[in-house]
Write a protein that binds this DNA or RNA. Sequence first.
DNA 1: TGACGTACATAACAAACGTTTGGTACGTAC
DNA 2: GTACGTACCAAACGTTTGTTATGTACGTCA
Lengths: 201, 201
Amino acid sequence: MPARGDHDARRREVSEAVWRVLARDGFGGLTLRAVAAEMGASTGLLTHYFPTKRALVRHALEITQERTVIRNRRAGVADGLAALRSALLDVLPLTPRATAMNRVWVSFWDAALADPELGASEAARYARWRAKLRPHVEAAQRLGELPAKADPDDIVTITAAFTHGLVVQALFDPDRFPPARQTSLLEQFLAGLPTHPAIGD
Amino acid sequence: MPARGDHDARRREVSEAVWRVLARDGFGGLTLRAVAAEMGASTGLLTHYFPTKRALVRHALEITQERTVIRNRRAGVADGLAALRSALLDVLPLTPRATAMNRVWVSFWDAALADPELGASEAARYARWRAKLRPHVEAAQRLGELPAKADPDDIVTITAAFTHGLVVQALFDPDRFPPARQTSLLEQFLAGLPTHPAIGD
DNA sequence: TGACGTACATAACAAACGTTTGGTACGTAC
DNA sequence: GTACGTACCAAACGTTTGTTATGTACGTCA
């Protein structure tokens, strides 16, 4: 029986159960009963803390995003291209934890494509991700690791595209994309980056 | 009332209705009643041609793949890097039709991640896509457009990753990614490709 | 013309869904 | 001790789901 003030903690517990069900069964398998069973509780508990399933899902995704932010903060030691590499390595499904995280997001895309509100929140998440990568690209430009005349937004977008595209391929074929292969592909991609903006020259 | 022998044609009609519902409402909104309403029929018609929903979905996805193959065949005029560019342009959501196609596939990822059988078929689809791109990369290597010593599989995988990653970003933020921006980003990516394999030198 | 299989519509089915309701246990306030 | 709000559980609500059963219209073959 949680003491007074544990309300938010309980909500977080519920959200983590949501997250676990989502990673295992996808969005199509996310039901209130499955979440309740996951945490050994009843559906009454869920509706006590969240008025509707939609609110529950929204909160669970906010929690996940928050967790991502925390993780990225840890990697803020390097600079320029090295920092970019580090940030991308954090996203790739190199560990079971990162794999689960990516499964949740990719599953979420189904609901996000069909629901305008969720779709907008996903677009915003992409914008935040690019905004987080951009300083590293700009630092790399200042350090001479990337051409200064290139549009940093384009570089960031291309990099994000490559990374998520690799995420999806790796999720569906883990045998073909073990961690070593993923990092190797990322390295090859990064090696080609300096030439991309040559078009504008 | 279709004449004898129209059985397969009717199945295709049903599959196209499935495809339309999928593009509009995603996998989560795909119900037999929605499909029936989409083609102005009853659920009895659906079960008459497909024993189960699963079979219906499977056939619909096969149809979509077949359509993709047909479309790619049309673009087999160029060679090398130009052919690669053409094949990638065919995938990007530059038209409403291509947008719908991509929405279906991205939505499908939710179900495919949760269901091993569907996941395997998606992995196979990726393998087929890469196999279709590889000849163009190898031709580009023979033509001197790409370094001959590079591993064509790596180049193909990186290229597929970038393309699908761009697809997802464009689906969620069409305003930020109009056709011109997508093609520009693809062009910048392709310009950087020749340097990628420099790592092996 | 009658028998028969195909091509559906209509309607019912049990199961599962999100949500609501009623009740119990318990800490806190007075 | 009584009153009260919080924290749940258990059960039921009406709806929607995939699936099945029943019935009918129609072309085909004998």
